[in-house]
């Protein structure tokens, strides 16, 4: 039985027919509370969330992500820290940890050496069997911090970014004692081909607002099949304790 409380935080918007049920089913197995900020959904997202006893649900009146992501993230952060977390998990409604997390999470939360845990994120591409590895999509060369120890004594400031504001306040980025975990995270945000063009247009608009030009990574969403490199997902054996 662990002592430290883990609170997951998530922004959702019209996730009813996407991956939310799977995400919440899995999260419910290993986090203590799930703070969900619904950014003005018009579908049955709320109904799904309310089925999970661990969910703490807060609703925005209107869809604000498209206006200013950082403000939305800040609001989510403030609700989350009001839930008295020892650790915070920043996760999206289309990301699922592989099952080894069930085995490892207690030891991660109880250890004293590290203040953050980073994981490799795999972007599934037009399917749930293959992930993308070309260029900046390569999951093997970078780790992203999903899990951070909450420090009430630290400041929490947010950049004034309309998009790509990051999941964490500036003070929680690049935590020096970050453990890079071997546990993989699946990201299904690109798993459905029908989403690609809509998301591409959205990110193009936001890039223009934020940077004045379309970023190479955004352009690579619509890259030709010849230049996209995919790898087949492989399952790892999972040890249930010892």
């Amino acid at each position: 039985m662990r002592k430290n409380k883990l609170v997951a935080m998530m922004v959702v918007f019209n996730e009813g027919n996407r991956f939310l049920t799977r995400v919440l089913n899995h999260l419910s197995l290993w986090v203590d509370e799930i703070v969900i900020l619904d950014d003005g959904s018009t579908d049955h997202t709320r109904k799904i969330c309310n089925q999970y006893p661990k969910v703490f649900f807060v609703e925005n009146d209107a869809h604000t992500f498209i206006q200013h992501e950082a403000r939305l993230r800040e609001k989510l952060w403030n609700i989350t820290i009001s839930r008295n977390p020892d650790w915070i998990l920043a996760i999206d409604a289309d990301e699922i940890f592989t099952d080894r997390i069930l085995d490892a999470i207690d030891s991660y939360l109880e250890q004293k050496t590290y203040d953050a845990f980073a994981f490799r994120l795999f972007d599934f591409w037009k399917s749930e069997n293959y992930y993308r590895v070309d260029g900046a999509w390569n999951p093997w060369i970078k780790f992203s911090a999903f899990l951070v120890r909450y420090h009430p004594e630290w400041k929490a400031t947010w950049p004034d970014y309309v998009i790509h504001s990051g999941r964490w306040p500036l003070e929680y980025r690049f935590v020096k004692n970050t453990f890079q975990s071997d546990i993989r995270v699946k990201h299904f945000g690109w798993a459905r081909p029908e989403d690609h063009y809509r998301k591409y247009i959205f990110y193009c608009q936001k890039d223009l607002e934020q940077y004045g030009k379309i970023q190479p990574h955004t352009k690579s969403i619509m890259a030709s099949n010849d230049s996209i490199i995919l790898e087949k997902w492989f399952e790892r054996k999972w040890m249930v304790g010892f």
Binding site: S107, Q111, K112, T113, K237
Partner: peptide
């Protein structure tokens, strides 16, 4: 990681030192 996944009873992982 891939090699271990292809072999029975071979595991590859790492853990924080406290584990």
């Amino acid at each position: 990681m891939k090699w271990a996944s292809e072999h029975e009873r071979i595991y590859y992982y790492w853990q924080p030192p406290e584990m």
